[in-house]
């Protein structure tokens, strides 16, 4: 346990980041925790609680996931992927918007869904699941707009200046959308155990999380064809995170939430992306070792 925490600290330090992690063996409830109760800015990871609310309301009959939504290009929030990057009118179902939101972190799709279900509903879902420190206070478009405003006229270039990064409201968990690593693994476990809504909704949510395209963070720690990884990333200047579930062929399921802040203000820091996978792997290996030891003990003659 102590060795594992030391290994995690070393991995984070080596990558030039500060890190927080909580990992949970969904089957046994065993956990691993390094600053897992600290408030973190969720950034795009809050698209996961939004997805849960969408499905909860669909399960309650409040909305139909095949409902078609008009997506006008005017007023789309900034973003490098999906509808946020597209130029023309589109018309998509709620569930296909959810696909874009989860697969490529589409800010425009996310805000259309957030408009449809309402901010308060997302907070009510969190409260119902006992996630008292998981709060959404603004849309994804508003989050991007705050970064743009705080960065000032220098644009993306100005984000290389630590003086500018220190004043970004979006990086203050007291201001923006927030949660803790522990609450996020608890949410993941609830999704995987079908405690959130119907199993059909559960399947749909797990499918979307497995369709996320990014290979560089959580998934990079598990270079095995027979290990299934499903997750959602979140990023802001100097902040990188991913929450997800790693499933082994022996049935082991591990919910992991990793959040890092790079010391460097550079936008491209591959080591900081990779350490999310490295840390998750260290944690999952430790949880799996505990499983094996427990199995061996119970197999011993009494």
């Amino acid at each position: 346990m102590t060795d594992t925490l030391t290994a995690l600290r070393t991995a984070f330090t080596d990558a030039g980041v500060t890190g927080r992690i909580h990992a949970l063996d969904i089957g046994s409830g065993a956990e691993l925790d390094l600053y897992g109760d600290e408030l973190v800015c969720t950034a795009s990871i809050h698209k996961l609680p939004l997805l849960v609310t969408l499905h909860e309301r669909a399960a309650a009959g409040d909305l139909d996931l095949t409902e078609q939504i008009d997506c006008p290009p005017l007023g789309r929030p900034a973003g490098p992927t999906g509808l946020a990057a597209m130029l023309d009118v589109a018309r998509l179902s709620l569930r296909d918007l959810a696909y874009l939101m989860m697969a490529v972190s589409d800010n425009a799709a996310a805000d259309l869904l957030l408009d449809r279900v309402g901010l308060d509903a997302v907070n009510r879902t969190a409260a119902r699941l006992g996630l008292s420190r998981t709060t959404v206070t603004h849309s994804f478009g508003e989050m991007m707009a705050s970064v743009k405003q705080d960065a000032g006229p220098g644009g993306a270039q100005a984000l290389a200046d630590p003086h500018v990064v220190a004043r970004l409201r979006a990086l203050d968990p007291a201001w923006g959308n927030r949660s803790t690593p522990r609450e996020l693994t608890r949410l993941l476990a609830a999704i995987w155990r079908d405690e959130v809504c119907t199993p059909e909704n559960g399947d749909a949510m797990r499918r979307l999380m497995a369709l996320q395209v990014w290979p560089h963070r959580l998934a990079s720690g598990f270079p095995f064809d027979d290990v299934h990884v499903a997750g959602k990333t979140g990023s802001l200047p100097t902040l990188r995170g991913e929450v997800g579930v790693v499933e082994y062929p022996d049935g082991g399921q591990y919910a992991v939430a990793v959040f890092t802040r790079t010391l460097s203000t550079a936008a491209i820091v591959p080591a900081a992306d990779a350490v999310i996978g490295t840390a998750a792997r260290i944690a999952v290996d430790a949880l799996r070792e505990r499983r094996t030891q427990k199995g061996m003990r119970s197999a011993e003659p009494g």
């Binding site: 973003g79 946020a84 991007m144 220098g154 993306a156 270039q157 990014w214 979140g234 802001l236 200047p237």
Partner: peptide, 18 residues
């Protein structure tokens, strides 16, 4: 004063965009 002079090209995986 250290004013950043080199351009910053954000890549899609950055997830944020100005």
């Amino acid at each position: 004063p250290d004013t950043p002079t080199r351009p910053t090209y954000l890549r899609p995986a950055a997830e944020y965009w100005l």
